[in-house]
């Protein structure tokens, strides 16, 4: 069984994004970039499926600039077998990402796609669902547990109010939520080994997908700042202040 895992290069989750002074976007120059945390969870899940003997090959795909090769190497160091970079300098919207992934899937023919539920830059939480709709494959989003037997995946999903379990016939799209697993740290020998694993690069424009944006960004502004209030000495002071503020 072949697993395909799309991964995205994003701002490191420990870095606070800063808005450019001309309000044209977020300043990413000289900012630390990493693999999107939810993509990392997806890679880990795929590698575990391989270690359990359920999957035979794990292919990671990234759509982005040349530097996204580093993100792919990181996934290879975690245990993925092979990587594909679909190169573009354009910041694609989720629908166009889904269309490019659909084209990649037509070439790779995976049995299952495991991907992050959300990228922490655009915060859309949309690409997996869109990809499932475009392919007419079943979707199992926000997964906290995945069990694959034969051509069926039993997926436990994080929903408002608790958990839901569904079964999807493969091929299917699964999106990873936080509690699906705890990703491993790549060991130094594995990082060295990853440098020798195959990484193909192709141009996004060569796939014949319309990449025209649907949304025009008019401006990117900083949200209103919340200023720090006061420190209180005791729990009693706190209650008195909350009463004055009218919230108790």
């Amino acid at each position: 069984m072949k697993v395909l895992v799309p991964v995205k290069r994003v701002i490191d989750s420990n870095v606070k994004a800063r808005v450019k002074s001309d309000q044209s976007g977020v300043d990413l120059a000289n900012v630390k970039m990493s693999i999107n945390p939810f993509c990392e969870i997806a890679v880990e899940e795929a590698v575990r499926l391989k270690e359990k003997g359920v999957a035979s090959e794990v292919v990671v795909v990234s759509i982005g600039p040349a530097q996204a090769q580093e993100t792919l190497r990181q996934a290879l160091a975690m245990g993925a077998d092979r990587a594909v970079l679909i190169q573009t300098d354009q910041d694609l919207e989720p629908l166009e990402v889904a269309k490019v992934l659909k084209a990649a899937i037509a070439e790779e023919n995976p049995n299952v796609v495991i991907m992050g539920k959300q990228a922490i830059d655009g915060d859309n939480n949309a690409t997996g669902q869109m990809l499932a709709a475009l392919l007419d494959w079943p979707q199992a989003t926000f997964a906290s547990a995945v069990e694959i037997s034969g051509d069926v995946a039993k997926v436990t999903r994080e929903v408002d109010g608790g958990l839901q379990t569904i079964e999807v016939g493969l091929p299917a799209i699964i999106t990873a939520d936080l509690r699906l697993n705890e990703p491993r740290y790549a060991s130094l020998p594995n990082i060295m080994k990853a440098k020798k694993k195959p990484l193909d690069v192709k141009e996004a424009a060569s796939l014949g997908v319309d990449l025209k944006p649907h949304l025009k960004v008019l401006k990117v502004a900083e949200p209103a700042k919340r200023s720090a209030g006061i420190k209180v000495e005791t729990a009693g002071d706190l209650v008195a202040n909350l009463k004055t503020a009218g919230v108790l």
Partner: peptide
């Protein structure tokens, strides 16, 4: 809409 964990607010115009 908020992006980057709410550290930026993006104003977008849709052509759809």
């Amino acid at each position: 809409r908020p992006i980057y964990a709410g550290n930026a607010l993006e104003t977008v115009q849709s052509s759809d």
